[in-house]
Design a protein around this nucleic acid. Structure first.
Lengths: 165, 165
DNA sequence: CGACCTGAGTATAAAAAGTAAACCTAGCCG
DNA sequence: CGGCTAGGTTTACTTTTTATACTCAGGTCG
């Protein structure tokens, strides 16, 4: 992160994709719900048992994730029971994998359990372990020191008028 | 994410790097504080002005980040003012870049501002835009469908005794 | 010298979010 | 019919977050 130049303190911070993503998945339990579903847990009671979170929050989080297309419900029926719904991750939800794997990787590096990580993600077939990497379009690895933060088309200052839609 | 096999509902969920990372950076405002500091904002009042968050929370989050080595304080002095401290990101903090860039990338894809992203990250020198990618050790791109979640050395079941340290 | 300004926080009261535990409901089973 | 189960909802209580006011130290101004 190159910050030799002074930051723009008049930057309009309301147009931020990080903040907008966190509005959807930044509340307590949300990413852990996703984790459990990725790990294959899909039923309300099972999620509740694994997470140990309040049932009303679990219901609220699931509703929000479904409303926003990150999860979907899918009918299923256990033998001799009525038809119910299970939760599955959509393609949109799977696009959160890099972010969550980034958190996992950081935790594995800095807050590891003494016995090692509880789970390891591998490339199926190949069997090799995974990592999350920042790369540029020329496929170079980009460490934080070589990142340059530039204004994009949506950059606005605090005094800029909102663009007319 | 391959979940053809039934999930282990007796899995001990307390050994999880995602959860441990979120304990440090998952509270409201924390990742946005980091964002501002990455963008070059480093003083308490400036952070407060950019974020618009409560001052006591800002102080609390900064303290926690510093206590955990994600940020550090650094003396500085503006001309004709007493020496004060500014906040800078450490190497440990910079290792959160993939996770946060993952959130940014998701937001750019699914919750974009109509005028485009406010900021674009580039590889300095090269100038090419960045992306966060999941790769295996053989350098294959790994889409979610090809991820296999396997138990690691720290995997425990709910009934497993805690390993004696 | 003393009044005032500024950056960096603390303190506090009200509002919102999270928690725990009880309650509800629809369909199946006997 | 009565009880069991999965998947929630309700409610009463605690913790966080929010907004705003206050403090404090060092430097400038007159």
């Amino acid at each position: 992160m190159d910050m030799t130049t002074e930051p723009r303190l008049d930057r309009d911070t309301t147009n931020c994709s990080i903040a907008r993503t966190l509005e959807l998945v930044g509340e307590k339990w949300t990413l852990l719900v996703l984790r459990e579903i990725w790990y294959g847990v899909s039923r309300f009671s099972d999620l509740h048992q694994m997470l140990g979170c309040p049932r009303n929050l679990l219901a609220e989080r699931l509703r929000k994730l479904v409303d926003n297309g990150i999860l979907a419900t899918e009918a299923y029926q256990a033998e001799g029971a009525r038809s119910r719904y299970r939760y599955v991750v959509t393609a949109k939800g799977n696009d959160l994998v890099p972010a969550v794997l980034g958190l996992l990787q950081w935790g594995d590096k800095y807050r590891a359990d003494p016995t090692g990580p509880a789970i390891v993600n591998r490339h199926r077939g190949c069997g090799a372990a995974l990592s999350v990497q920042v790369r540029c379009e020329h496929d170079h690895h980009v460490p934080a020191a070589e990142m340059e933060i530039t204004p994009g088309p949506g950059f606005r200052t605090r005094s800029d008028p909102e663009p007319a839609t």
